[in-house]
Amino acid sequence: MEKIKLKNRKIEFEIIRSSRKTISIIVNADQELVVRSPKRTSIKNIKNLLKEKENWILEKLAKMSKIKNPPKDKEFIRGDTLFYLGRECKLIPITEANIESLEIELVEEKLIIRFPVKFEDNKEKRKIEIRQKLIGWYRSQARIKINELINIHKKYLDVEPNKIVIKKQKKRWGSCSSKKNLNFNWKIIMAPLKVIEYLVVHELVHLIHPNHSKDFWQTVAKIIPDYEKKKEWLRINGRLLTI
């Protein structure tokens, strides 16, 4: 790692060299400064460029510092919590003698997880089974809620998506394909309802405007006037929405 001083602040940065022709400066969600550069670019030239871009870099670091870190891996024991529709729900695991498979029930702000006796003494297997069952439950809840919101807003926008897909996406909350298929990350069901609504409207508007043009954002704003707040909520809290 290299170091540079930007406005009295010492910052470490990583250089990744390749056959590229230009220099790229990246500040990622972990507040790491990364420079991608051509193989023969000198350290001096890289540091000179970082000095030129110091205001942008410091602003970006400040912005990224607001992003909340992902939670620790869950053990799925009493006291653990998970988000659902923006609310933090307590996990209540219960051993049941008369069931053969895991069952999940949401009661007020409690996620009750009933598991058969056969999992009681095998903590690792129980953890794996609970996680898989929870993901399935969240996906089904996401499908219900997202379809409800699509049916509401597609009428106003006069659009008709081809297919709605709820799936795992590493870096995206939603997407719209050229075939008019709308894809949603199942984890979005953990976010507040208004944030989910923003995401649904965002993807529906892509059926009219395929890019993020001025017209696109104006159309989004007609339905979600404070959409920027919803975008910011996802940017800051998105890493918390996980199992």
Rank of each mutant, 00 (worst) to 15 (best):
I104G: 03
E120Y: 10
I77S: 12
E105I: 13
L58M: 07
D158I: 12
A142C: 09
T81I: 06
F76A: 03
L111R: 03
F76L: 03
I144E: 11
K90Q: 12
E108M: 04
G79E: 00
K90E: 14
N69D: 14
L58A: 12
T95M: 08
W137Q: 00
Q141D: 00
P93G: 00
Y84E: 08
S101E: 15
I135T: 06
D158C: 11
I77H: 02
I144P: 06
E88G: 12
P70G: 06
I144Y: 07
G79Q: 05
L157A: 11
P93Y: 09
P116M: 03
L85M: 12
F115I: 01
S65A: 12
T81H: 09
L106T: 10
E129C: 11
L149Y: 08
L111H: 02
K154G: 08
L61G: 06
K123S: 10
I113M: 06
N122Y: 09
K123D: 03
R143Y: 08
R131A: 03
L91H: 00
D121G: 12
K125D: 08
Q132R: 13
E120P: 07
Q132S: 14
L91D: 03
P93Q: 04
R126Y: 04
F83S: 03
E108Q: 13
F83Y: 13
L111S: 05
N122K: 09
